[in-house]
Nucleic acid binder design. Structure first.
Lengths: 383, 383
DNA sequence: TATACTTAATTTAGTCAATATATAAAGTAG
DNA sequence: CTACTTTATATATTGACTAAATTAAGTATA
């Protein structure tokens, strides 16, 4: 069991001061004392420590409001850098960010091979390229976080991927050995949720559900600023919840899973002609030209999404739901179909404003991964 | 923002020591120092405080294992008492417990009137009777917690009750004024979940879902030992999630809600003949006599329960699900029907051992309410 | 029975991070 | 130029924890 002592007090207050500087910089010692409730002496001492750590620096004097001019402090966002990865079934997005999550460099690469060894080589090559451009800094590369479309257990092993062979690769182990930095592996919906919470559409909320609609449907749930994980890290994986128990059989063994109706795969299938798959770019193009068949399909898509989103509202009682889908982002009219389903003429209907579209869009997963790594780093230097 | 200081350290360690005494008493100061990691001097000091508070006492010397004999400490479970209430649509259960959740006195009363003012009088009368038997103790009645079948907002106001008029009564305000003690109001599924977690079937788990099946279906979710609440306190209220979007219209405005299929109300309706309602005692009786119609109905009941429970597993990834229903408790064969639905012949099937039956049974809600009050009290005296 | 060893709990002295108060630094206002 | 403000630091004190020594009370063994 863990007992408390003065070291803990110091760490807690250090984190408190650093957080406040990050969120309100530039800020003076006096102001910090005021908002944190800490004694001025204590703040000065903590600030001295943080200056030693290169986590903050002084930018000179601020404006006087009738007395001695304050020394303004700012967060040193370039004290270190992190890499967030979005590994898809057929693409690999890598972002290099500073400690505020601002992208310094990024790469988007299509994955041509389905062989795990090819992906492994590709990933390491691309990472080496990104790492080579990291500026000189006190902490350098603080770590790598990987968002993956599949089930991640509590040991951060990728145990199941529906549409790829990536679960054969022990990412954490390989990347830690290769680059000698901490590596985290997370489900893409969880990293996406965290990204939107830190930098995106959910910045000002603490109870959110993030829904990413790709080939399948992934869900990440944040409650009181904490990602919920469940026993095996599968919390919120709602793609295979049943919305019609008489419906068609799913690959998971159940009938009428949400994914069968409201995934991009389902949308594509509804538009397939002569066994010819439709590209999503085509769908978008035709939608913008008011192609009736596509508009009809998108309306149905929205209806089915709405069914599951209604379940999400009834299940998690969130402040907001963030939708992450390339078609919805480019053609927001789909939201109207969803809202029609969500809000029948009834008193118990949820607030329509609960629906938001991803602000980070195609970078949500990678930026969220970076954000998770940054949080871990900040927790580490202040503990 | 809240900063840390020495007072916080002391409180944290006080709670640590008290918890350890509660869970392992009788225990010596030396042993406490060993398991908590705190210095022997610190433990002695904290123990002295707790002795002062009458929260623990010494029961004399324990056995020597080759040295000075230890002084054994135990939790003073009679330092105070609490009342937990289970308010149903037509019944009122009250339990008076000590600080370990052991029932000292209880009352089960049928509510004949549907008038709020009648219930209010009845409740106060019964509470006065229970309070009159509380033994002399340092803290006396530490508070009252009320579990209710309806929606409770973050201000502990009962905002909606599907089958009664109880939401008109400002319980918290009335009971606090009448008895001058802290009063909490919680959804019955949340108190039940907490009760099973503290004293019942889920004692050794930290990620649990509790499902109470009455006229409707209530769900309480505990993740990492914390009750999840959501924005409006509706987290986990899954009775109105859709399991068949083509299904019949529900009073909530949606189609095919789980409650329409898997509540006791649904079971009763499936067995209704000539517009004559069936009593649950009859159902049980006929089931035990192998009445085919009832067995069939229960099998269907189990199937529909299974559909929703599968969704719960896919949604919350819990260690265990606790089922609270009087018919299932008395006739556990229903579990087999549920398990058949839960586990089709498929690799992704969940572990059948995930299903547990309530250990606290008809007292789950009231005992859970008491447990919540006790937790609040312990948090209070150590803060 | 005497001696050595163990274990339990307290006493005493010291550490560390916080606070309170006083002081210094550097401005504004009239 | 003087009085007042605001910012930041210096000094002394407080309080919770720790370490080491001490007291207390047993067991083990020759």
């Amino acid at each position: 069991m863990i007992s408390a002592d003065q070291a803990l007090v110091k760490k807690m207050n250090k984190k408190l001061v650093l957080r406040e500087i990050i969120h309100t910089s530039p800020v003076s010692r006096a102001k910090l004392s005021e908002v944190t409730g800490l004694n001025k002496t204590t703040v000065s001492s903590q600030v001295a420590d943080l200056l030693d750590d290169n986590l903050i620096f002084e930018i000179g004097q601020g404006l006087s409001s009738g007395g001695r001019r304050p020394v303004m402090l700012v967060f040193n966002k370039n004290a270190g850098f992190t890499i967030g990865i979005d590994l898809g079934v057929d693409y690999l997005t890598i972002v290099l960010t500073d400690l505020e999550g601002t992208i310094v460099s990024e790469s988007h690469q299509k994955i041509d091979s389905t062989l795990p060894c090819d992906l492994q080589k590709l990933m390491i090559t691309l990472l080496e390229k990104q790492i080579s451009v990291i500026p000189d800094s006190r902490y350098g590369l603080i770590g790598i976080c990987l968002g993956v479309p599949g089930l991640v257990n509590n040991d951060q092993e990728l145990t199941f991927t529906p549409n790829s062979n990536w679960s054969e690769i022990p990412f954490k182990q390989i990347l830690e050995q290769t680059f000698q930095v901490p590596v985290f592996v997370e489900n893409e919906a969880n990293t996406g949720a965290y990204g939107e919470k830190e930098y995106g559409a959910a910045k000002h909320f603490k109870n959110i559900v993030y829904v990413s609609i790709n080939a399948g449907i992934g869900t990440g749930v944040i409650q009181n600023n904490e990602l919920l994980k469940g026993k095996n890290g599968l919390f919120g994986e709602m793609g295979h919840t049943v919305i019609d128990f008489n419906g068609p059989r799913c690959t998971c063994g159940n009938r009428g899973c949400w994914e069968l109706y409201a995934s991009e795969k389902a949308l594509h299938q509804s538009l397939m002609s002569n066994n010819q798959t439709v590209m999503w770019q085509d769908i978008l193009h035709r939608a913008k030209q008011n192609d009736p068949q596509v508009l009809q399909a998108l309306d149905t898509f929205g209806f089915y999404l709405g069914i599951g989103l209604k379940n999400i509202i009834n299940t998690f009682d969130p402040e907001v739901i963030i939708l992450r889908n390339r078609i919805i982002e480019a053609f927001p009219q789909v939201l109207n179909s969803i809202r029609h389903t969500l809000v029948p003429n009834h008193t118990h209907a949820p607030d329509v404003n609960i629906l938001l579209v991803s602000a980070l869009k195609h970078n949500a997963t990678a930026l969220g991964a970076a954000a998770i790594m940054i949080k871990h780093f900040i927790d580490g230097v202040t503990a």
